[in-house]
Simulated scan of single mutants.
Amino acid sequence: MQTRRTLLTALASLTALGLLTACGASDATDAATDQVAPKGQKGTTINLGPDQKRVHTGKVDAIAAKLPAAVRARGTLQIGVSTNSSPPLSFYATDDRTPIGVELDLATLVADTLGVKPEFAPVSWENLFVGLDSGKFDAVFSNVTVTEERKDKYDFATYRLDDLAFEARKGSGWKVAGPADVAGKTIAVGSGTNQEKILVDWSRQNEKAGRKPVNIKYFQNQTDSYLAIQSGRIDAYLGPNPTAAYHVASAGQTEVVGKFSGAGAHLQGKIAATTKKDSGLVAAYQAALNHIIENGTYAQVLERWGLSGEAVPSSEINPPGLPRTGN
């Protein structure tokens, strides 16, 4: 969890660099202490407070009718978000307890379209899937990549491109274009993530080619990874591109040395709303996502968080995903 001061400083840096853009009128807040304005740039603010005043849209009856009757009667969507994520995906507001970020904004628009109230449950990454399996969550909006293995248990409605980035110490002079460039390197990655699968696969490719494998390290949080980069204990951290761009801009101590699709070299990865397989929910999510893409509120949210480059033209249900390990 980041402190209030860290969030304010980091987002000010991002805004100044153009990685985060100004909030629209609907995102304004009356509390000046919950806004950030970069030096010498008046009128550009980012709302960091717990009252986000998010972009909203109206209910569409024909799309809402796609929800299972039990969910319509309940009037809420139980949505899992990961507390392990970082800005601008999902993180804590200035009260250090309210989750905010692009994932929650998009989930809110989906809920609006479906005529239900979103109820967010912040949990650890592994508990997102436990919650889906148990029926606790109707959906997860938390930077989940579509993979062939996950499609065995879950249904997906895509809403954003999935790009990953290698982040290394600033001025390293190192560039990563493929497996050979990480041979013998010490790289940190999140356990249970698709980026871990890619890194493991690259390490195996290196061994088959007679090169050194990757020395893969795991830390409990990203802060520990960043400290390890600065101390020289690791060469790089592999994670989501949005969080890498955020950290590079806010800290000024690292740089992106390689950017890739989250599904590997031959397939563009997709981030998706995730639900339990055959729950009857995925068609409603897809229809709602296509509606907000068409009416422009989707673009407003991505622009707000500096992620316009990861927009999709339409939502897909269960597209080709990251191949199974070893394939």
Rank of each mutant, 00 (worst) to 15 (best):
A165M: 10
A236I: 14
K197F: 03
P240L: 12
G135R: 03
T6G: 08
G24D: 09
L67I: 09
S250M: 15
Q78F: 11
D96W: 04
T33C: 04
S142N: 13
T275F: 05
D235Q: 09
P118N: 05
P87F: 04
D163W: 04
S308F: 10
A272L: 02
P242R: 06
G24H: 01
H247C: 07
Y92R: 02
F141W: 12
G264L: 14
A283P: 07
T83F: 00
D201E: 15
I229N: 13
S172H: 00
L322I: 03
G232L: 15
A157T: 09
K197Q: 11
L89K: 07
G171I: 15
Q220T: 15
L7N: 13
A25S: 09
A263W: 12
A236R: 07
A37I: 05
L48Y: 04
A180R: 04
D96E: 14
D152K: 13
E255F: 03
V257P: 06
E149R: 03
L8H: 12
H266S: 09
V110K: 05
G75C: 14
G269K: 03
Y246E: 10
F120I: 10
G192T: 08
I100A: 07
Q195V: 00
P179D: 05
W125Q: 15
L17A: 14
N290D: 15
T275W: 02
H266V: 14
A251P: 13
G101I: 12
A236Q: 10
Q253E: 07
K197W: 01
N47K: 01
Y226I: 05
A12F: 05
T243H: 06
N206P: 02
T275P: 13
Y298L: 15
T3S: 12
Y154C: 01
G75S: 11
P213S: 01
S191G: 11
W174L: 11
K153H: 10
A263L: 11
L132Y: 14
Y218L: 10
D34S: 03
V200F: 06
Q300H: 10
W174Y: 08
R72L: 08
V257W: 00
A121Q: 12
G280I: 01
V60Q: 05
R54P: 00
Y226P: 04
R160A: 13
A209Y: 12
K53F: 08
P122S: 08
P87M: 07
I292E: 12
E126Y: 11
A245L: 08
G296H: 11
D181C: 11
V301G: 03
V257S: 15
D112H: 00
L8E: 14
T113W: 03
A249E: 05
S261W: 12
N194F: 00
P118D: 05
S26E: 06
D112N: 06
A64C: 10
G232T: 15
A188P: 11
L89Y: 03
L307G: 08
G326W: 02
I234W: 09
T76W: 01
A265Q: 05
